[in-house]
Design a protein around this nucleic acid. Structure first.
Length: 224
DNA sequence: TTATGATCATGT
DNA sequence: ACATGATCATAA
């Protein structure tokens, strides 16, 4: 099977999503000659990269939506037998410098979460990666209340960074969206605003959606 | 180096 | 049991 071309419309994208619902990751990987690891100890992003390929996503590692033409971000989300997410959901890197004039409206988080294609994967850890089943993907846009929650968390944590207080930030902060390390290892460093407005260095961070937030999105969709 | 895709695994 | 902090592969 050839590499899928980018879907031209949302309808075309959603038709592809419906066609793969119920299949296992191993089945579609075989169909598209995509590699299949024994476990995810090393290739942690395998599931997401496989689905991007199969659905014809285009963005690569650029900071733009996966389906740029459609303005849609693809997020695979691992769920357990209970239907709840097994992991938090990475959104984007946290900007740590040149924050003046940055607002929620212009933030990468807001842009990425404007329109998301959620694709649940039954990924209980007892199931081998190739035997994990693709669920029913669906489009989501944040409700007014959800967007306000995200905006509050974003503004609270960005303010701390702007004040040079990034060392006070941990994964505990944020009602629905947290900041956690996002790096090759704990020794990686990047520039950040220091306590006196000077420049110093710190561990790169990312924004992640907390599990109860994504669990509610799934519950709203599937009526659980 | 920084972005993408995330899950691993230890501490609480 | 679970979330936080740590980590892995890859592309540009």
């Amino acid at each position: 099977m050839l590499k899928p071309s980018p879907p031209l419309t949302i309808n075309e994208l959603m038709q592809r999503v419906e066609q793969i619902a119920g299949l296992t990751l191993g089945e579609i990987a075989a169909e598209f000659n995509f590699k299949t690891p024994e476990h995810l100890l090393r290739e942690k992003g395998w599931q997401g990269q496989l689905l991007e390929y199969v659905l014809g996503a285009t963005a690569g590692s650029k900071p733009v939506p996966d389906f740029e033409h459609l303005g849609i971000e693809l997020k695979t989300i691992p769920i357990g037998f209970n239907g709840k997410p097994l992991e938090t959901t990475y959104v984007s890197v946290v900007p740590l410098t040149n924050l003046t004039g940055m607002t929620w409206q212009s933030s990468t988080v807001k842009k990425k979460l404007t329109h998301v294609l959620w694709l649940p994967i039954l990924a209980e850890k007892t199931i081998q990666p190739i035997d994990r089943t693709i669920g029913s993907g669906f489009l989501w846009q944040p409700s007014l209340a959800q967007e306000h929650q995200l905006q509050r968390d974003w503004e609270e944590q960005m303010e701390l960074i702007a004040l040079g207080r990034i060392n006070e930030i941990s994964g505990h902060l944020g009602e629905v969206m947290q900041i956690r390390p996002k790096a090759a290892n704990s020794k990686a460093l990047t520039d950040v605003i220091g306590p006196n407005g000077t420049m110093t260095q710190t561990l790169p961070r990312g924004y992640y959606l907390k599990i109860p937030f994504t669990a509610q999105i799934l519950a709203d969709q599937f009526g659980l």
